[in-house]
Lab assay of single mutants.
Amino acid sequence: DVEEQIRRLEEVLKKNQPVTWNGTTYTDPNEIKKVIEELRK
């Protein structure tokens, strides 16, 4: 469920934690926001 994935990513973003997505770890909040934007398409 895309909405659920977006919610999880936004939670991690608020906590300033790194996100691992498709084998890539993102630590930059701007990169995480880009992943969220991609999911919304």
Score class of each variant (00 low, 15 high):
residue 12 V to M: 15
residue 7 R to Q: 07
residue 25 T to I: 14
residue 26 Y to H: 03
residue 19 V to C: 05
residue 24 T to C: 05
residue 2 V to T: 05
residue 15 K to R: 12
residue 21 W to A: 03
residue 5 Q to R: 04
residue 5 Q to E: 13
residue 36 I to D: 00
residue 3 E to A: 11
residue 6 I to T: 02
residue 13 L to K: 00
residue 24 T to V: 15
residue 20 T to H: 14
residue 7 R to Y: 06
residue 36 I to L: 11
residue 36 I to K: 01
residue 37 E to T: 05
residue 30 N to E: 15
residue 37 E to Q: 08
residue 10 E to Y: 08
residue 25 T to S: 08
residue 21 W to L: 11
residue 38 E to Q: 12
residue 33 K to I: 14
residue 32 I to D: 00
residue 28 D to L: 05
residue 30 N to T: 14
residue 6 I to G: 01
residue 31 E to K: 05
residue 29 P to Q: 07
residue 17 Q to T: 10
residue 24 T to W: 06
residue 16 N to T: 06
residue 9 L to W: 07
residue 12 V to T: 07
residue 8 R to P: 02
residue 33 K to M: 11
residue 23 G to T: 03
residue 21 W to H: 08
residue 10 E to H: 05
residue 18 P to Y: 07
residue 29 P to N: 04
residue 26 Y to M: 13
residue 23 G to D: 05
residue 4 E to W: 10
residue 2 V to S: 06
residue 15 K to N: 15
residue 29 P to F: 11
residue 38 E to V: 04
residue 29 P to D: 04
residue 6 I to E: 01
residue 25 T to G: 03
residue 14 K to V: 12
residue 4 E to G: 04
residue 18 P to S: 14
residue 34 K to G: 08
residue 17 Q to W: 14
residue 1 D to Y: 13
residue 6 I to Y: 02
residue 39 L to F: 03
residue 33 K to H: 09
residue 7 R to T: 09
residue 40 R to G: 04
residue 15 K to W: 13
residue 37 E to R: 06
residue 32 I to S: 01
residue 27 T to M: 05
residue 5 Q to F: 12
residue 31 E to F: 05
residue 22 N to S: 04
residue 28 D to G: 05
residue 31 E to I: 07
residue 18 P to I: 13
residue 7 R to K: 13
residue 5 Q to D: 09
residue 33 K to Q: 12
residue 33 K to R: 15
residue 36 I to Y: 02
residue 27 T to A: 08
residue 28 D to Y: 03
residue 1 D to S: 14
residue 14 K to M: 12
residue 32 I to P: 00
residue 35 V to G: 00
residue 26 Y to L: 14
residue 16 N to D: 11
residue 28 D to F: 03
residue 3 E to Q: 14
residue 8 R to E: 13
residue 40 R to A: 04
residue 24 T to D: 11
residue 37 E to S: 08
residue 31 E to A: 07
residue 34 K to N: 08
residue 33 K to G: 09
residue 21 W to Q: 03
residue 16 N to V: 04
residue 2 V to F: 09
residue 17 Q to F: 15
residue 25 T to P: 03
residue 41 K to F: 10
residue 30 N to S: 11
residue 2 V to Y: 11
residue 40 R to D: 02
residue 12 V to L: 15
residue 17 Q to R: 06
residue 27 T to R: 08
residue 28 D to T: 08
residue 7 R to E: 06
residue 36 I to P: 00
residue 22 N to D: 11
residue 13 L to I: 14
residue 15 K to M: 11
residue 16 N to G: 15
residue 37 E to Y: 04
residue 37 E to I: 05
residue 41 K to W: 11
residue 24 T to Q: 14
residue 11 E to D: 12
residue 6 I to K: 01
residue 15 K to D: 10
residue 26 Y to I: 14
residue 41 K to Q: 14
residue 22 N to Q: 08
residue 4 E to S: 09
residue 16 N to Y: 06
residue 9 L to C: 03
residue 37 E to D: 12
residue 30 N to W: 10
residue 6 I to F: 03
residue 4 E to L: 07
residue 10 E to M: 10
residue 4 E to P: 01
residue 10 E to K: 04
residue 33 K to P: 01
residue 6 I to P: 02
residue 33 K to F: 06
residue 32 I to T: 01
residue 21 W to I: 13
residue 40 R to E: 04
residue 15 K to G: 10
residue 21 W to V: 11
residue 37 E to P: 00
residue 19 V to S: 03
residue 36 I to H: 00
residue 39 L to P: 00
residue 13 L to Q: 02
residue 30 N to P: 02
residue 22 N to A: 05
residue 11 E to Y: 02
residue 28 D to K: 02
residue 27 T to V: 12
residue 10 E to I: 09
residue 20 T to W: 13
residue 31 E to V: 08
residue 21 W to T: 02
residue 9 L to K: 00
residue 13 L to V: 09
residue 28 D to H: 07
residue 14 K to L: 10
residue 35 V to E: 03
residue 9 L to Q: 00
residue 39 L to T: 01
residue 17 Q to H: 09
residue 16 N to K: 08
residue 9 L to T: 01
residue 23 G to E: 03
residue 31 E to T: 06
residue 4 E to T: 09
residue 8 R to M: 15
residue 23 G to P: 01
residue 34 K to L: 11
residue 8 R to D: 08
residue 28 D to N: 07
residue 23 G to S: 04
residue 5 Q to H: 11
residue 27 T to K: 03
residue 16 N to H: 12
residue 38 E to F: 11
residue 35 V to L: 15
residue 30 N to G: 11
residue 19 V to L: 13
residue 19 V to F: 12
residue 12 V to G: 15
residue 33 K to D: 03
